[in-house]
Computed example of a mutant assay.
Amino acid sequence: MPQRFGFRVLKRLGGGRFSDVYEVGDAQQPLSAKRYALKVVELDAERPPHNARNEVSIMGKLKIHKGEGYSVNVVKLLAEFTNPMEIGLMLPLYKAALHDVVSHHCRVRTRFNLDGSTSKVVRNELTVDDIRHLVVGLLDGLAFIHSCGIIHRDIHPSNIMFKDIDSLDPVIIDFGISYDEPDNNGLEAPELKFTDIATGYYKAPELLLSVRNYGTGVDVWSMAIVMALLCSEGGTTPFDKDAAHSDLALLSNIVRVFGSPPKDWEDCKGSRSFAAMNEHFFASEPLPIDKVLPKVATVDKRMVKVFRGMTKYPSKERWSAIEARKGLIDPEEH
């Protein structure tokens, strides 16, 4: 049986362009049932903003945070290993990602159409209480990350894990492209951060317009889109499929769903792209909230209010993670 950093490799769980993740067991105790996730990064293959050494540094910073204690909604680094070619990060093993959990709570039904044909309809059966529990947990985790001076920069369903398919206790993972304020350990100046961050639908609008002096608001926007997925009828975001692969299509979809940004949007002051957008895009009104958050629009006004606060275009007006959490727990906060 192959080994990595002295652990038995049981199977490959996944990975990306710069890393592989394995389920491993203790090679010294082959009969032990303990299992871990081992993320292995090939250092020569990395490209900015991916940086495994910085990831280890950031996860170490999270562990020594002097706040109220480590968040149960954030993955914890158990150990690190290095050799001349690779870095290994030992992490708890989680068996399901957010998409798996949402799919587990969706039911596929057959619809009989007027023309005699049939079609499949996916119905999200997460309850409002389930959604609230998930969102509060995610905001707990994000607030902890931000309190440590870290911008995660890649909040999306594959980076939200659960111990198993039946769990509703989310854990935020993967700090491979995260930013450690104030200058990412000397890698990026505050006003010159990388904009090639975030994934698909979950990119904040300022990133699409090449704003480089962004802050934690990019994570809050991403989390709001995760919230929209949880509150959807079919376990999807309110965006078209093309928006996952094209920044221009995503920007168009954001304007369609959330309406046009203010013409004096401070984040984009001086941006040629935004000036051109203002000149050529027609003004657009936001979609009705029952089209964006159909499962909660009429039954949970607090969740609607929090979502609107998390999706304000100006980042200075966008609610923080802690404000959003308080808005869900205490309706008098805003």
Rank of each mutant, 00 (worst) to 15 (best):
V171C: 09
V226W: 05
L93Q: 01
H152A: 02
D26L: 08
L77I: 06
A27M: 08
G217D: 09
P182V: 08
F112M: 12
V211F: 10
W319P: 00
I254Y: 09
A244M: 07
P262E: 06
T82P: 00
G25P: 01
N124F: 00
I322S: 14
D174Y: 04
F162P: 01
V135R: 01
R302D: 15
E42Q: 14
G14T: 11
F258S: 01
F307L: 04
S246Y: 08
D247V: 03
P48W: 04
T236W: 05
I145S: 06
L293A: 00
I329A: 10
P314N: 08
V296L: 04
L230F: 07
K61M: 14
E266Y: 14
H65Y: 13
V40W: 06
F194P: 13
H99L: 14
S260L: 02
K305M: 07
N159H: 14
K39T: 05
N51Y: 11
A297R: 10
I173S: 04
T311M: 01
N253W: 03
K95C: 07
V21K: 05
I173E: 01
P262K: 08
S147G: 09
K163T: 11
M310F: 06
N51M: 07
H146N: 09
G217W: 02
E323D: 14
C106W: 04
S71N: 00
Y36M: 02
D290I: 04
E46G: 09
D115Q: 10
A283V: 14
D115K: 10
K163C: 10
R53W: 12
E86F: 11
F144M: 11
N213M: 00
E42N: 14
T199A: 05
A37K: 06
L230T: 06
H133R: 15
P48Q: 03
V128P: 00
D300Q: 07
W221Y: 11
Y179A: 05
K193M: 05
L248V: 13
I177Q: 11
F274Q: 01
K63T: 10
I197C: 10
R272D: 08
C148D: 06
I329Q: 12
P49E: 04
L114N: 11
Y22S: 03
P170F: 06
S315T: 15
D180C: 12
D140M: 10
S271A: 04
V101P: 01
G137Y: 00
R272T: 11
A244Y: 03
E42K: 15
N278W: 09
G69T: 03
L98S: 00
R212H: 14
I87M: 03
L78K: 11
E333I: 12
E68G: 12
R53H: 15
R123T: 12
T311D: 06
R212C: 12
M161T: 07
I87Q: 00
E42F: 15
H50I: 11
Y70K: 01
E333Y: 15
Y22H: 11
